[in-house]
Simulated assay, not measured.
Amino acid sequence: MVELVEQSAKLQSFIDKWLAVQPQQRVALAFVDGRQYPGHIALAALEQELLGAAYGIREPQVAVAKLNWWAEELSGAATSGGRHPLTQVIFDDERAHAIAGERWLAPVLAAMTQLEQGTAADFAAQLSAAEPLHGALAALETAWWFGRDASAERATRVAVLNHLLYALLRMEADAERDRLPLPMSRLARHGLSRAQLRAPSDARQQAVKAQLDDLLVGWRESARLPGPLSVFRALELRHGSRLTQNATRVPDSLAALQSGQPRSGLATTLQAWSAARAWRRYAG
């Protein structure tokens, strides 16, 4: 009994880390019952763990070690059942065994590759650079929720755009990193140096606004792409697009991104309900 309690506490700690980054997903949990669908929630928390290893560790050798551990864990989980609390929940579900082993490894391998990436040349290059990792995560999630034949094209675009938005939100904190959230062409056009990204200025506001405008176009275009969205990804889309829209309307867009979480009111609840309804209809 003590071991079961400890295991549950460890699992909850990873779910709490995911919800700390995406607090709007608490609304989704009303429609994705963790007692009935524990693997759905564990998979979302696993995605956050992999993203944390890919982007949240500043020492490359530490990040590589962490990702190597995940590669070993995911490559053997189908046979062993896994060692990590999240992996154990996921591979206790038959869905995990219906997904090819290479699809489980793809996000980890893509994360390793992108560790060496520098700042992209332009917005299109940013999209392309982010797609291998976030596309692999979206493909894994889509196969889990909807089956291996479902298109992950729309989910991939939403995941990539959300990543670029979150990177922009962290611009001041990550100004010393090799990979900056604004592409080189945008920095050059507005005459911004790395150091100038840390302090508010008209040039920085113009550059951030231009990045947000490109993101808004991306959010709109994503609606025309094929493929279903999980309940969590649908809320990520709503949250990201609303946060982008709100930030474009104020004099300091970056400050709005950092502090302006869209309210999780009735509209968010209705979006979660609609996404859950679409999921159950698609999954039969």
Rank of each mutant, 00 (worst) to 15 (best):
R154Y: 00
A44G: 11
L254F: 03
W69Y: 14
D174C: 07
P23W: 08
G76W: 09
W69D: 07
R280I: 07
V160W: 01
Q196R: 12
L216C: 06
A283E: 13
T248I: 14
G76F: 04
T87H: 07
E47T: 14
A188P: 09
P23Y: 06
R194G: 10
Q7P: 08
R179M: 01
L50Y: 01
A167E: 13
E59T: 13
A54M: 00
G52E: 05
A106F: 01
P132G: 05
A54R: 03
M184G: 11
R186I: 14
E73T: 09
A210P: 05
S241M: 12
K10T: 11
V5G: 14
W145N: 00
A143M: 01
A63Y: 12
G56D: 07
A65S: 15
A188W: 03
V208H: 00
A138F: 11
F146H: 09
A53G: 09
G191D: 11
S222L: 04
A173D: 15
A167P: 06
E176K: 06
G101V: 09
A121L: 14
R26E: 07
D149N: 12
A175R: 14
A139K: 00
A155M: 09
V208K: 01
V27Y: 00
Q25F: 13
E3T: 11
L212D: 02
F31E: 05
A98I: 13
L257C: 07
A54Q: 07
S230Y: 05
D252T: 02
G39V: 01
S264L: 12
F91I: 01
W104H: 03
S80I: 04
A234E: 08
R170G: 03
D16G: 10
L270H: 03
T79I: 14
V108L: 06
S193R: 05
E102A: 01
V250Q: 02
A77R: 06
Q12A: 15
L180I: 06
A125R: 04
L74S: 02
N68D: 12
V62K: 06
A96P: 00
W70F: 06
R154E: 07
Q114V: 13
T244G: 06
D149C: 10
A278D: 11
Q25D: 15
G265R: 04
V89E: 08
L140D: 06
L86Y: 01
R154N: 03
S128N: 14
L105R: 12
Q261F: 15
